[in-house]
């Protein structure tokens, strides 16, 4: 197989097209490294070793160098995550307002600790730096949605089926 066929065996034509569009904005291909990781992650949920190698090959950099970049950033996932990632703010104001009890209650409800994913693959729980909503502490994000003034006692309701549509 040619190099491109090799690549397409791992990345989709759509992913490659999106990465190539980013390449137009940078003077060297490696400049699009983070964008490329985010594109593939948007399609697949995470960056597998195979994806990493294929992206590195496409950008003309070593897989080790790209992995150094991928593992630097907290929102690039090198392990599979659930359909929704819970980002629990544990910076100082949320800590004063009870984020530790919040974490305990989420863990009890979902049966996962920090960094773990539920058995049904619905949620992954991660700690997050100050989410910039300290006047509404404690806060967390579930997927793209910010939840403010979260009550440690009722937080479990956020994870009931259909809770976010209410």
């Amino acid at each position: 197989m040619t190099m491109r066929q090799n690549l397409i065996a791992v990345l989709s034509e759509g992913e490659i097209a999106e990465i190539d569009a980013e390449l137009a904005h940078v003077p060297i291909p490696a400049g699009a490294a983070i964008d490329a990781l985010k594109i593939v992650q948007a399609h697949r949920g995470w960056i597998s070793d195979e994806s990493l190698k294929a992206i590195a090959q496409h950008l003309g950099m070593s897989a080790a160098e790209l992995d150094g970049i991928a593992t630097f950033y907290t929102l690039i996932f090198r392990r599979p995550v659930g359909e929704k990632v819970i980002l629990l703010c544990n910076s100082v104001t949320c800590w004063m307002k009870g984020c530790d009890s919040l974490q305990q209650n989420i863990s009890d409800q979902l049966g996962i600790g920090m960094g773990e994913t539920t058995a049904d693959n619905a949620y992954t729980l991660l700690p997050m730096t100050c989410l910039g909503a300290c006047d509404k502490a404690p806060v967390l994000m579930i997927g793209d949605d910010l939840h403010e003034d979260v009550d440690p006692q009722s937080v479990a309701q956020l994870f009931q089926p259909g809770a976010e549509e209410q």
């Binding site: 400049g31 985010k38 907290t74 929102l75």
Partner: peptide
Amino acid sequence: SAGRYICGEETALISALEGKR
């Protein structure tokens, strides 16, 4: 961004925009 507080430091931000750590 792809995360990390240090990206708010202006020269680190520039490194991030260039696709680096």
